[in-house]
Design a protein around this nucleic acid. Structure first.
Lengths: 188, 188
DNA sequence: CCACGTCCATACAGTACTGTACGGTTGACC
DNA sequence: GGTCAACCGTACAGTACTGTATGGACGTGG
């Protein structure tokens, strides 16, 4: 019959969902097993530890979230169009709602810290490169990249803190363009 | 002798610190009591519940964090100077490091949700008013307020995610002015 | 058809936290 | 100096989670 055996990936995605909602401490074996319809016996076959689950889940997210999106826009030749499309994707989409806020909140966690750091650095570096292609000198390019990235981060935070105050922006194409232009910043 | 009896406020500040570091689940009675050098008997005299501690702590923070800062800049007449000073304070100071990211991460929590919502709305309303004083029409003022506030939120998040990438901005007065101007946005 | 690898359930300690009940200590005030 | 309230320690259940050990079900290849 369909006894519905689980793969390692099932645990990873479930862990990311729990992490997004309740933070690191919500990545617990018992609730996840209950949610997946199995017992802890399943978990301790796939993973050695609770920490191993958290680490593997974050590493998987690191690959999917960072590399996939960057690959999606890296082919765009014009740097201004590239930034525009990048921010549009980043603002409107949100694969695992609330994950990034949860990660930032647990920035001190020994498992979270290195991965969050790598992802942030990689994103800022990509932005810096794009702004450099736009003609900014190196120092100003990195400065603008930090400003733009922090604006992006704040946006996804705000979307979670007050979800119903923002559709008035995302829903209106003109307002969305206004936001994207503001994210890109003064590059003239 | 100096048996160092605790006040209710001691528990509140300790709770905010724990909340900032480990999230809602870190606001636990046993660890806090241990950190304060007492047993749980003290806690259950001052508070009825673990939830009551969390609620009271957040309400205290709501008053201190929101009202105090707004009062500090509300007297400045020129709206542009007012915004400048507001963002300067918001960017450079951080009374309880990491609290706001932790709150956003637990935006679904029944205790956190209403308070976070009130604080966000109040801040955005204050910004909207300032931009209106600057001459923006109502719709654009609120839109710009949301953009500016999300940029601010992202800044304090980024400061926590990668603390050593940002002093290069805060330390340099010129770069700080650049950031503040970018937060204020195009208001010409 | 049976032997083996995969996947999961169950049972057993062990730990950490929550609430409650109650008893003890301290200091102010009459 | 006795009384009362504020404050805290201790002991008792109760719950939730972690890890480990072990055995069973299930399918696949020899």
């Amino acid at each position: 019959m369909d006894v519905a055996r689980l793969s390692k990936q099932d645990w990873l995605t479930a862990a990311l969902g729990a992490l997004a909602q309740g933070g690191v401490s919500a990545v617990a074996v018992v609730p996840l097993a209950q949610q997946l319809g199995v017992t802890r016996g399943s978990f301790y076959w796939h993973f050695t530890d609770r920490t191993a689950l958290l680490r593997d889940a974050l590493q998987w997210w690191e690959q999917q979230g960072t590399i996939a999106v960057i690959d999606q826009v890296a082919s765009i030749a014009d740097p201004r169009d590239k930034l525009r499309e990048l921010f549009r994707i980043a603002i409107t989409e949100d694969p695992v709602s609330g994950l990034e806020p949860a990660l930032v909140a647990h920035a001190d966690d020994p498992v979270v810290a290195p991965i969050l750091r790598r992802v942030t650095e990689r994103r800022v570096a990509f932005l810096t490169e794009a702004y450099a292609e736009l003609g900014l000198p190196a120092t100003r390019a990195r400065r603008q990249a930090l400003v733009a990235y922090s604006a992006y981060v704040g946006w996804i935070q705000l979307r979670r803190a007050t979800p119903d105050a923002l559709p008035e922006i995302v829903g209106d194409p003109e307002a969305l363009a206004y936001l994207v232009d503001n994210l890109i910043g003064p590059t003239g």
